[in-house]
Design a protein around this nucleic acid. Structure first.
Lengths: 253, 253
DNA sequence: CCGCCGCCATGACATGGATCAAAGAATAAA
DNA sequence: TTTATTCTTTGATCCATGTCATGGCGGCGG
């Protein structure tokens, strides 16, 4: 995972396919549905106003590359609707998706001056864009924001460690169960219902996130379906039959 | 990885096996060999003094558990000499080592109030201990320190993403080569010579870090030795015969 | 409505790395 | 020094998952 929960949500008054427009005049943050999940949660009205001042909103269609590994890192992004995947590639094309970003998640942090991974939309997506320099200036000015961002990075780190455990030590079945639970929990944190889980990404994406092949993902889903742990519903939804079963399966217990 | 580069180094005036003593009176930071790698690098004399005020130093033998997963997270640690491993376990005992911490590395960050992983010494180790509460107070007081810590957390995140790529998509041989390169690079950053790399951890630990078994680690080492990519020297040292070869092998090129 | 194309499912087969077993090395203990 | 203990290496075998191949389904454009 490379996201940092940090966001504000507002889709209107934006344009599609990479065009952006200043959002300050409409002060969209006040209408944001995911603000409580993010850096913005920590902000006073004044700080929020300053943040809104530097931000732009953008929309992309599904399958659009927001930025590529190695590109100069000039912008920080915040998902306000839709799903984004971030991934790294090996020279021969093998791919590891390190995170799926949902509304409220933050991405685009960079170590040097270039992105260490590629970010691509999974569904149509709305984003907030923060110019990096101006964002850094704001962070210096508002230590509370800095602190919040740090605490979110710590959360990310913990999530990354969980993912390492998954990638290094779990079986295919455990991986899939863990993945479904993760989606369910993240939905819950966003105030969505946890049970029929929405799974917007393809089998191939799930495979590249879990260190498997699409065939194995597909087989494992049918296996879980056959053993009545889950059932597959319309519209990329997965119904979890017994949450506790799934929890045990996710840890090999 | 769970470490954050952040440190000061000083071994004298400490006791062994968990006993600690106030280090403020000797102001050890001034003699620290790894201070430039860490939070402390960003500090003024006054700030450094305040930091030294709250810190204690400790020594542990090899194989000592510093804290366990789930323990209340009351202390932050900084390695000043030796190697520490941090890991997570599955209920049935499968283990994933998420990082090896070297002098200058920082660990013990927690999301809630408890550690999300176990920390155990690999070699005899010297540590700085920072009481969490007092450390947080200092961070509030010195935004520069906060900022430095955040930037180090970002680095950690990037390293974690590399490790996910490794765990999810690399072959055993690529994993071992990547691991040796990592050790070499980390030695370099600490001003040690990069080529005969010191590998203080056991095959089992390497296996649990790379998502392999000890047998596979062992076989892969002999395979690399046979194909003249590396040679094994006395004292857990590995001589890299051709750095560029190794770099290619680490990425499957 | 039809046909193309991308996604998903499923089968047959191959294999990298795991597992099981046991014999050296190294280290610590006696 | 000898002996126990733990770590490492190596061999034989197995199996979970990957690879290759094929067919079905669903959506979208013509």
């Amino acid at each position: 995972m490379t996201h940092i929960d940090f966001a504000y949500s507002r889709d209107s008054n934006t344009q599609t396919n990479g065009k952006t427009d200043p959002a300050s005049e409409i002060h969209p943050c006040s209408a944001c549905t995911v603000r409580t999940l993010t850096v913005c949660a920590a902000l006073e009205a004044e700080e929020l106003r300053r943040l809104a001042e530097i931000l732009q909103t953008t929309r992309f269609d599904a399958g659009h590359t927001v930025f590529g590994e190695g590109d100069p890192a000039e912008t920080l992004y915040n998902v306000t609707s839709g799903t984004v995947k971030v991934y790294k590639l090996l020279p021969d094309g093998r791919r590891q998706i390190t995170g799926f970003l949902l509304p409220g998640d933050f991405f685009g942090l960079s170590v040097n001056d270039s992105y260490a991974y590629t970010a691509e939309t999974v569904t149509p997506v709305s984003l907030c864009r923060f110019p990096r320099r101006r964002m850094e200036a704001l962070l210096d000015e508002f230590p509370k924001m800095q602190r919040r961002l740090f605490s979110m990075a710590s959360n990310e780190l913990a999530a990354a460690q969980d993912q390492m455990l998954l990638l290094g030590r779990k079986t295919a079945k455990e991986k899939i169960c863990s993945f479904l639970l993760l989606l369910s929990q993240r939905a819950s944190r966003r105030g969505h219902k946890t049970n029929p889980v929405h799974v917007p990404m393809s089998r191939a994406d799930i495979a590249d996130y879990l260190g498997l092949t699409t065939e194995t993902v597909s087989r494992t889903f049918t296996q879980l379906k056959t053993s009545r742990v889950i059932s597959l519903l319309e519209g990329n939804k997965v119904q979890i039959q017994d949450m506790d079963d799934l929890l045990d399966l996710a840890e090999g217990a």
